[in-house]
Amino acid sequence: MAAAAPPADVPLRIRGLSVSYASERGRIDAVRAIDLDVAAGEFLGIVGESGSGKTQLLLSILGLSAPRAELHGSIRYRDQELLGLDVAALNKVRGNRISMVFQDPMTALNPYLRIGRQITEVLRVHRATGARAAEQRAIEMLQSVHIPDAARRMRQFPHELSGGMRQRVMIAMALIAQPEILLADEPSTALDVTVQAQIMSLFQQLRAGTGTAIVLVTHDLGVIAEVADRVIVMYAGRIMEQAPVHALFAHPRHPYTEALQQSIPRIDAPRPHRLPSIPGAPPNPASLPPGCPFAPRCLYRMAVCDARMPPLVEASPGHWKACHHEGALGKLRAEAA
C-alpha cells in the first residue's frame, strides 16, 4: 500500500514555490517556499486547515492564481517549466496532461450548457476530435464514473443532476483527456458523507484503472487516511510534515500533525469531557512570525522556534518534518489520559 521506496518517475517537480498577494492588510504569503514531487500514479494527499495555502498551491500549478498574485520558484512538468509560461503553451499542458476537479460541483459546471457539451470541450479544444467521436468518448467516460443512462444525461443541464452526480461529471470531464496528473481540490466537501465515500472510492478505482496520479487536497484527515499513499501536512503556507500514510498516522513526527490527530473524536474511546482542539488560532497570513508559524500553539515550544523556521528534513526514510523538537512526541496523549 504505502509507497516505501521513492518511485523513479516523477512527472511533476515543484521547487521553492512561493505565492503571495498584495492586499489592503499588506503582503499575504499564501504559499512559502514549498518543494513537492508528484510521482507517476501515486495518490498524494495534502491536508491543512482553511488558509494553509493548499488550494493556492493547486491553483498555481495550473496557472489559475489571481492575476495580481506573485509567484516565485519553479513548477516543472516533465521537462517544461510551467511558471511564467504563456497561455497558449500552458493550455497544451492543463486540461490535457494535468487537470483539475473543483471544490464545488454546483458552481463548477456552466448552468446553461448541456453536460455533453461541457465534457467534450477538452477534446474539442485539445484534440480536434470530431463531434461524434467526442460524444461517444464522453458517454464511455460517464459510464466509467458510474453514471447510469449516460446517453440521456449527456443531454441534460447541470441543475437536473444531484450534487454527487455533478461531481462525477466533473471527474469525467477532468479525466476525459487521460491526464497524467489529476488535481482535486476538496472534491467531496460540498457533498454529504455517503456520496463523499462513493466519490473517494471512485478516485481509487480510476487511479487503479488509468494510472493517473491524484493529488487530493482536503481538510479531512479521515479521507486522507483511507485513500492516500503519501500525505503532506501544510500549515501557514509551509509543509510541516510529509510521510507515507501509515507512518504519518502511526508515528506523527510533527506536533501539529499530532495535535490534528488528537482533535479527531474517536468512536472507540470513552467520550472526553470536551472535544479536544488546538488552542489558539492560525497566524495572520499578512504578518507571519519569523520562526515556526505553529510555535505559539505548540506544546513543545522552545526558544529557537520563535527565532528560526525549522527546515524540512528527512527524519527517517521517506518521512520528512519541519520541527526543531528532536525527542519523541506524546505529550498530548499523556495529557488527555
Binding site: 486540461g95 473543483f102 458552481t107 463548477a108 448552468p111 477538452v122 470531464m173
Partner: peptide
Amino acid sequence: EFVDAARVSG
C-alpha cells in the same frame, strides 16, 4: 469556478 474549469480545458 466553471470559468476556471473551462480555462483549464484550454
